[in-house]
Design a protein around this nucleic acid. Structure first.
Lengths: 339, 339
DNA sequence: TTGAAAGCGTTACCAT
DNA sequence: ATGGTAACGCTTTCAA
């Protein structure tokens, strides 16, 4: 049998009610008494039973987190960071997987919403139409997904693309392929907008879009041939997994990376660092976005109004590795050479 | 406000007690009544509040699972499978990470043990000495870790090594390097034993142990030079991550895989399939072992004696990919050539 | 077979 | 500032 709050109360010679107040910090309690209770709790090794506590108090100090796929390192890292930070705030995070099934999402949420104070939703698939019903299920925050109804945290994809292109241009590339992701993917749409912006910012660079491949290794493999045909000296791939497929196909076709062609990915998955050559990639600020999302959600759960802190945009980082280098023709210098 | 069992009871025109019995299947209840209750529950969309239920009943229908690192795909897959299967059995799995901190393990377990019916422990680091105290904390099962005190599920590492060596031998390799893992690692010790067994089974094959590298990408990089110096035509690496580092270093040293040297990894992490060339590897039966572990634990939690089902050993599989091929000298034929 | 009632550990409310 | 009491949703005696 575990140590209960009554044991603590007895040892501190107060009532369970006072012990509860001292331990949770709600209500007013004499500082000396509070200290005595805390000491008693520590000496007894007391740990509050969170389930009993949420049974009485309307608040569960639990958050739900919904992700498409835990095996995807992108989401795994997001979950891990959210859990760690929520723990600091005294919250437990219950994770549910939709297995990329958009229908499962609302259902999952409904079954959890009574048991948690709020939901962190990281499923880029959610149709806009479903979001109305979603907000009825209690406080919610989107992660890496925009919305007109729900507060969200997102990373600045346009900046990420710009950083990548900027780096390739600095290396001397003037014809860059963008290997596009699935047509129907919301996140691929975001990338396309960013690519369009990059075209305007770098008017003297050819950015040619090729493909629209599945966001899988096989998609990258298929894209390899398209990239070669495009005549580009560098590729920006939809994401790292696609970039890895690309790497594989280019090697098969006899091209050397980065000597013949440079590759940049997106997401910085663990496999990117372990590829040969290691993959240059745009790292999204996952830990930071998870923290920001938890912050927003907890504020919401405590009754804050969404309006004032509805949107957070975080900057990504370019991680430069071996898969990018100047094109074989060498770095075209402009201006006079000082040497 | 959520739908409670009283609502269901009211709709089925029975008492909450009867509704509870009908829904949990405990005690005796008239089949017709039970059906009425189940219908009412379904119509109302009732979901039992697991926290309230474990508060009263001694059983929590929750399992704890302790892993060193959720970002490691090996453990991520283990967790995912355990959760899915436990869910089928009506159990919820609470996951805790030790961050490779052996001390954190017992503490974590202690803080959880009052709240769960049993613990699934997947931390290969646990010292034998700590296991005594561990069993005091309630039912526990080890996953991928042996023990004299605690029931465990493990995969047949010796078989895995044999499959790998067998395949390399069939390809014609006669000198094989084993790139060893960390000296202090328990799991590396297991591999060493398996390697010793393989030496006896294949007496006409040279299996030379090199290294004792960190179980990281960098470890594999460092091991690359040792492998080259060994003169082997094939390498069995401690695990996939090490194999990937090896792959990287060999490419840098100008060797082609698998033309100049074949590589086999261990674990079948996602990055193995996405490497160039794709990595041949020994896949451990993670989903099956998770299921077996949950089965054992649930049986234990329900009062079964550990003795009769204390140990389960599952067979791994060899996943043959591009990173292995016959040695450059070609396949030495034995006997007469039919052509 | 069924229902009434108690109680699991906690916190909210209302007194004091 | 503190204590008594009720209640959260559920299951489990115990009695009918």
């Amino acid at each position: 049998m575990a140590i209960t709050i009554r044991d603590v109360a007895a040892r501190a010679a107060v009532s369970p009610a006072t012990a509860s107040r001292a331990l949770t910090g709600t209500g007013s309690v004499d500082p000396a008494t509070a200290a005595r209770v805390r000491d008693a709790a520590r000496e007894l090794g007391y740990e509050r039973n969170p389930w009993a506590s949420s049974l009485r108090g309307g608040t569960t100090r639990k958050l739900a987190m919904i992700v498409p796929d835990l095996m995807n390192p992108f989401f795994a890292e997001l979950v891990r960071s959210a859990q760690a930070y929520a723990h600091e705030l005294g919250y437990l995070v219950l994770v549910a997987e939709t297995d990329d099934d958009a229908g499962a999402e609302l259902e999952l949420l409904r079954s959890l919403s009574d048991r948690v104070d709020g939901s962190l939703i990281c499923t880029p698939q959610t149709a806009e139409s479903a979001q109305g019903r979603l907000v009825d299920e209690g406080p919610a925050v989107f992660l890496h997904r925009t919305s007109t109804l729900v507060p969200y945290v997102i990373s600045d994809v346009a900046l990420g693309v710009r950083l990548a292109v900027e780096n390739l241009v600095a290396l001397g590339h003037r014809r860059i392929a963008y290997l596009d992701g699935p047509a129907e993917s919301w996140s691929a749409g975001l990338r396309r907008v960013a690519i369009a912006q990059a075209r305007e910012e770098f008017p003297d660079v050819d950015i040619v879009t090729v493909g629209q491949v599945r966001a899988r290794f096989e998609g990258g493999v298929a894209g390899g041939d398209l990239v070669i045909a495009s005549g580009a000296t560098a590729v920006l791939a939809y994401n790292d997994v696609v970039a890895l497929g690309l790497l594989h196909r280019l090697a098969r076709r006899g091209l050397r990376v980065p000597d013949d062609i440079s590759i940049v990915g997106f997401d910085d998955v663990p496999a990117a660092a372990m590829a040969s050559p290691a993959l240059t990639t745009v790292a999204q600020p996952l830990a930071e976005s998870a923290r920001a999302g938890v912050d927003m959600l907890v504020a919401l759960a405590r009754g804050a109004q969404p309006a004032d802190r509805a949107v957070v945009v975080l900057p990504p980082t370019l991680v430069v590795r071996e898969s990018t280098a100047p094109p074989a023709a060498g770095l075209p210098r402009t201006g006079t050479d000082p040497v």
